[in-house]
Computed example of a mutant assay.
Amino acid sequence: MIGQRILNRIKTDESGATLTEFAFVGPVLILLVMGVFDIAHTQYTSALVNGAMQDAGRDLTLESAGSRVGDIDQAVIDRVSLVIPESANVELEKLSHFDFSDIGEAEEFSDDNTDGICNNNEVFVDANENGLWDADRGQSGIGGARDAVLYTAVVTYPRLFPMHGLAGLPEDVEVRASTVLRNQPFDEQDRSTSTGNCP
Results as ranks from 00 to 15, higher is better:
8 N>D: 15
37 F>D: 00
108 E>T: 08
37 F>K: 03
98 F>T: 13
4 Q>F: 13
101 S>N: 09
119 N>P: 08
13 D>C: 14
180 V>W: 04
59 D>V: 00
67 S>E: 06
2 I>Y: 11
142 I>Q: 03
45 T>I: 11
137 R>L: 09
13 D>V: 13
3 G>S: 15
166 L>W: 15
164 H>V: 05
182 R>T: 09
64 S>K: 05
134 D>Y: 03
69 V>W: 02
191 R>V: 05
8 N>Y: 13
154 V>K: 09
34 M>C: 12
134 D>N: 14
10 I>R: 13
7 L>I: 11
70 G>S: 12
46 S>W: 00
181 L>W: 01
13 D>H: 13
191 R>S: 04
116 G>P: 04
176 R>D: 07
43 Q>C: 06
112 D>H: 10
186 F>M: 01
20 T>P: 00
198 C>H: 05
84 I>C: 11
173 V>K: 02
3 G>R: 15
24 F>A: 15
45 T>G: 07
182 R>D: 00
76 V>F: 03
95 L>M: 11
107 E>F: 01
104 G>E: 01
129 E>K: 13
64 S>R: 07
16 G>T: 14
105 E>N: 06
92 L>P: 06
131 G>V: 12
34 M>D: 01
138 G>E: 03
82 L>D: 09
149 V>Q: 03
188 E>V: 07
178 S>H: 06
98 F>A: 13
187 D>K: 05
120 N>Q: 15
137 R>M: 14
119 N>S: 15
96 S>E: 06
84 I>H: 10
191 R>T: 02
97 H>C: 12
54 Q>N: 10
104 G>H: 03
17 A>R: 12
6 I>G: 08
62 L>I: 02
144 G>V: 02
136 D>E: 12
146 R>L: 08
114 T>P: 02
172 D>M: 10
71 D>S: 13
159 R>T: 02
169 L>I: 07
61 T>I: 08
135 A>T: 12
35 G>A: 14
118 C>V: 06
104 G>A: 04
156 T>V: 10
139 Q>D: 07
182 R>K: 12
171 E>H: 12
